Simulated scan of single mutants.
Amino acid sequence: MRYWRVERKSSEGQLDLGRAFDLMSAIGHEDVNAMAGAILKTVASAAPIVQCTIFAYEFGNRPRTVAVADRRGGRFLQDIADSYARHYYALDGNQSVIAPASSRQDCAIVLHQQASDEIAHAGYRAACYQRPNVSDRLSLLVQPAGDIWLSVNFYRDSAQGQFGPGEIAAIETLAPLFAHGAQHHYRLNGQPLQGAGPMMLASLRRHCPDLSKRELDVLRGVLEGLTAVEIADAMGLQPSSVITYQKRAYKRMGISSQRQLFALCLGPQAA
């Protein structure tokens, strides 16, 4: 696995105007997957890629799928994206880029490469690489706001092997176009209204930075009014595991009840 900051380069060759127009037209489109589809078509000039996903990582929560596109059609990729968001996102190498300690405010664009054989976790590797027949992934990461990152992901079919240096260089040249297009689309169509849940969760993260991602996911469910069974179903866990994560989080924060949790979110002196 490796990641690096994209430096602006002078473009070589020409971008097909029809594909560029499709990409611009997809910004804010009512079809939620139009942006991923337009990016997938445009990037074909740089390298053979079979799938594209766009995820939003907001306020340290588990990722939300903004758009998907699969040359093979169907909702298979959507199911894979859902599985990633529920079970495996914390194992993703992208987390080393989007972690709060490495948060950037200078509109940097970062590329991260992660091949199937570099993933140690068998479940993650099977669900997100082997099952969809992916050998390599190149992720374009950009930060539209302080607590928000977008990830535009390009997936390589196993028959095509890993990305070559020339293909990566060609994608890197197009990266600013994709990054700015994805950011504008997110602001127009992909960004949900910031409800109480995400904002309160951000407050908890500031209060207790040691909370794990699983603990934060459980607390998010509690703040949204879900039961332990409903949270367990959303996270793919047993209800007993949810209760364990909740108790562990409460202990870290020095509280013992749901009432104190809400008080902690709403005011620094309330808890």
Rank of each mutant, 00 (worst) to 15 (best):
M1W: 12
R2A: 15
Y3D: 09
E7I: 05
R8K: 10
S10K: 15
E12R: 11
L17D: 09
L23K: 02
I27F: 00
E30H: 11
N33P: 08
A34G: 00
M35P: 04
A36P: 01
I39W: 00
K41N: 14
T42R: 07
A44S: 06
I49D: 02
V50W: 13
C52M: 10
T53G: 07
F55C: 00
E58Q: 13
R62W: 08
R62C: 11
T65M: 08
V66L: 14
A67F: 00
A67W: 01
R72M: 03
G73M: 10
R75H: 11
R75Y: 09
Q78I: 14
D79C: 09
D82Y: 15
S83R: 15
Y88P: 05
Y88M: 05
L91D: 09
G93H: 02
G93E: 07
N94P: 11
V97Q: 04
V97R: 00
A101Q: 11
R104L: 14
R104N: 13
Q105R: 15
A108V: 14
Q113S: 13
Q113G: 13
A115W: 06
A115C: 07
A115H: 05
S116H: 09
H121F: 06
Y129V: 02
Y129H: 08
Y129G: 06
R131P: 04
V134H: 02
V134S: 01
D136A: 00
S139C: 07
V142E: 03
V142L: 08
V142K: 06
P144E: 04
G146Y: 12
G146L: 11
I148Y: 06
I148W: 05
S151R: 05
V152A: 01
V152L: 04
F154L: 06
A159K: 06
A159R: 10
Q160I: 03
Q162L: 12
Q162C: 13
G164Y: 06
G164W: 04
P165A: 07
G166N: 10
A169P: 07
A170I: 06
I171D: 01
L174Y: 03
A179G: 05
H180G: 12
A182Y: 01
Q183R: 11
Q183M: 15
Q191H: 11
A202Q: 10
S203T: 13
L204S: 07
H207G: 12
H207Y: 15
S212Y: 02
L219A: 07
G221Y: 01
L223H: 03
G225H: 00
L226R: 13
L226K: 15
A228Y: 14
E230N: 12
I231M: 00
D233S: 10
L237E: 10
Q246M: 06
K247N: 15
K247C: 14
M253I: 02
I255W: 01
S256E: 10
R259N: 12
F262A: 01
L266G: 14
G267I: 04
Q269N: 15
